[in-house]
Computed example of a mutant assay.
Amino acid sequence: MTGQDLPSQASFLFDNKCDRSRSISRNLPTGRVVAIAQLSTILLLMLFGSVAILAQSTATGTVSGQITDPTSAVIVGATVTLTDTATGGTQTTITNDNGRYLFVNVKPGVYDLNVRRPGFAETKVPEQKVTVGTVTNVNVAMKVGEATQSITVEASGATLQTMNATVGTTLGFQSLQELPNLSRDVSSLLTLQPATAANGSVAGAVRDQNTFQLDGGNNTNDMDGTMNTYTGSYAATGGVTGVMPTPVESIEEFKVNVTNQTADFNGSTGAQIQMVTRRGGNTWHGALYEYYLGSNFGANTWVNNHTPTRDSRGNILSPKTPLPSNHYNRFGVSGGGPVGPSFWGGKTYIFANYEGRRYPQNTTVEKRVPSALLRAGVVQVQDANGTFQP
């Protein structure tokens, strides 16, 4: 009897209606048990592997291009190196039979591209910006020369995006810092995009059809999709936001696609908002901030200035009504940098952000109260001329 013919016993316990238990035994071939275990393992790997790939693709970008010689013929086997200017990390690949190369899951940032091939001078293309969810296409034409020679190609300006028909805008950290934003939450900038209404609806779609993604994960409110129907919004004007607050100081890149989104990222008919948190670099950096908006710095209203304050007996306590005391205080601290050169087997970087908000509120409530005559028991009724008579 071979190993595959050996029986394997499995027992199952069932409770019947008479509260008695019985044991049922079945003989399963070992080969079938192994096959089931292998199939289960493959399904689990496919499930969790696909989730990881999806999360990475929606929080990263892609760099691709073609390497050619002076006659525009493709160069096969060229070594292409992509270097992160913030951390110094590198990725390397080889051009295929069509002279093309591809880097996937590239974190947003600025990168230097370096191309080497025996018989050609080394070519460098510095400061290529990679944005979330987009393909950065960098074609390089190498020149014949010694390997010790180096040619630097100046980075060109922004070009028209021709990889797809998606319409949208990408904002980097510097732009996020400088743009006026009352709530200091990145989601508030959604209303600055084309085809977007003040309430957050995009291209005619209902505003709860917007999709928010944070570092590749879903950040959309599953109850109403807006974060302002059942809960308070982080936006200054009660606009549409994600579930997790996204302070300006914590976001590296903010991208909004308003129409013609590709099927690989979008899952709704509204806008697709992709945000990537900041990351540490080779040097330590940080910020300490506070934003304060209070009634003690604001002018009173015209109505309050012309409405005296009275006590319960009608006596004037003040010739005007004071402005209700309230304030909105938003404060925080952020910082990031390298942890150590050999921590966890290689360079490790860290970034953290804490933000607190304090906003006690009060308001003036106006109600009708009985007049002095009514409190004395005198009821007045209007006559034909409109005059009140007791």
Rank of each mutant, 00 (worst) to 15 (best):
M1W: 10
T2G: 01
G3D: 08
S8T: 10
K17L: 09
R20T: 13
S25W: 05
S25C: 01
R26F: 12
L28G: 04
S40M: 15
T41D: 07
L43V: 12
M46K: 08
F48N: 10
G49I: 11
Q66C: 05
D84V: 13
G88S: 11
D97S: 05
R117L: 06
V130R: 05
T134S: 11
G145Q: 04
E154L: 00
E154W: 00
T159K: 11
T169G: 03
S175G: 02
Q177F: 03
P194W: 07
P194A: 09
A198D: 04
G204P: 03
R207W: 02
D208H: 09
D208K: 04
D215R: 15
N219H: 09
T226D: 03
N228A: 07
T231H: 10
Y234N: 14
Y234H: 12
G238V: 04
G239W: 11
K255H: 12
G270P: 06
A271V: 06
G280E: 06
T301W: 12
W302V: 14
S312N: 09
R313W: 06
S325M: 13
H327L: 10
Y328Q: 07
G335Y: 01
G337M: 01
F343M: 02
I350C: 02
S371W: 03
R375Y: 00
Q389M: 12
Q389R: 15
